[in-house]
C-alpha cells in the first residue's frame, strides 16, 4: 500500500473570500482545465457560470419518477378495483380516472421526490464514504469558513508550478499537494 499512498491526487488551494475564489475559478476555466472543482461551505451564487458548468440534469430524474408514480397509481387502482376483484360500491363505476386521481397524484409526488433525491446522488456519485480530500486536515475547514479550489493531477494540462503561481496571484493563502 506504500506506493499507492504516495500517489498525488491534486493541488488544493485555500481562499479566504468568495470573491477571490470566484475570480480564480474564472481564470482556471479560461485556461481550459477539465478535471478541477471548487469546494465551498455553501453554494456560491454565480459559481456555476464562473466554472462554465451546464444546467443540472436532476430534473429528468424527477420527471421519470413522477411519470412512474402516476402510471403505477392508476394501474394499481384499475387492477385492484376493476380487474382482479371487481367490487360494486354505491353503484359507482369499477374504474374511473376521477376517483383514482388523489392516489395517482400522491404517488406522482412520492416517486418524483425519490427520483429527485436518488438522481442527485447518482449525478454526484454519492454516497462516497472515502475521498482523498476528506483525509486532509486543512480541508475540513471547507464546511466551516474557507474556500478551496482543487486541480486534479489527472488533468491533461496539470503543471504544478504554473497552477501554484496562478492561484497565489489570485489570493490563495495556502496551497498543498494532496495524496490519493
Amino acid at each position: 500500500m506504500e506506493s499507492e499512498s504516495q500517489k498525488a491526487y491534486g493541488l488544493v488551494a485555500e481562499f479566504d473570500t468568495p470573491a477571490d475564489i470566484m475570480e480564480a475559478a474564472r481564470q482556471v476555466r479560461n485556461l481550459g482545465f477539465t478535471k478541477w472543482d471548487v469546494h465551498t461551505p455553501y453554494p456560491i451564487h454565480g459559481m456555476d457560470q464562473a466554472m462554465g458548468m451546464n444546467n443540472s440534469k436532476v430534473g429528468w430524474f424527477t420527471f421519470l419518477g413522477g411519470i412512474t408514480g402516476f402510471t403505477t397509481g392508476y394501474l394499481m387502482i384499475w387492477f385492484m378495483n376493476a380487474f382482479d376483484y371487481p367490487l360494486i360500491v354505491g353503484g359507482k363505476p369499477m374504474f374511473s380516472p376521477y376517483f383514482a386521481f388523489p392516489v395517482g397524484y400522491e404517488l406522482t409526488i412520492l416517486l418524483g421526490a425519490f427520483g429527485t433525491l436518488f438522481g442527485m446522488f447518482f449525478l454526484n456519485k454519492l454516497p462516497r464514504l472515502h475521498h482523498p480530500l476528506l483525509k486532509n486536515r486543512n480541508f475540513a475547514k471547507v464546511t466551516h469558513d474557507k474556500y478551496f479550489l482543487v486541480v486534479e493531477v489527472e488533468d491533461p494540462k496539470f503543471d504544478e508550478s504554473q497552477i501554484r503561481e496562478l492561484l497565489t496571484d489570485n489570493g490563495s493563502t495556502n496551497i498543498e499537494l494532496v495524496e490519493e
Binding site: A25, D37, V38, H39, T40, P41, P43, I44, M47, D48, M51, M53, N55, S56, K57, V58, G59, T116, L117, G119, M120, F121, L123, N124, L126, P127, R128, L129, H130, H131, L133, L134, F139, V142, T143, F148
Partner: peptide, 16 residues
Amino acid sequence: LGWTGSNRHWSNYEKA
C-alpha cells in the same frame, strides 16, 4: 454521505 462541498455537487444539490 461523503459530502465535500464540491460546486459540481452543489449545482445538482440546489436543483434537487
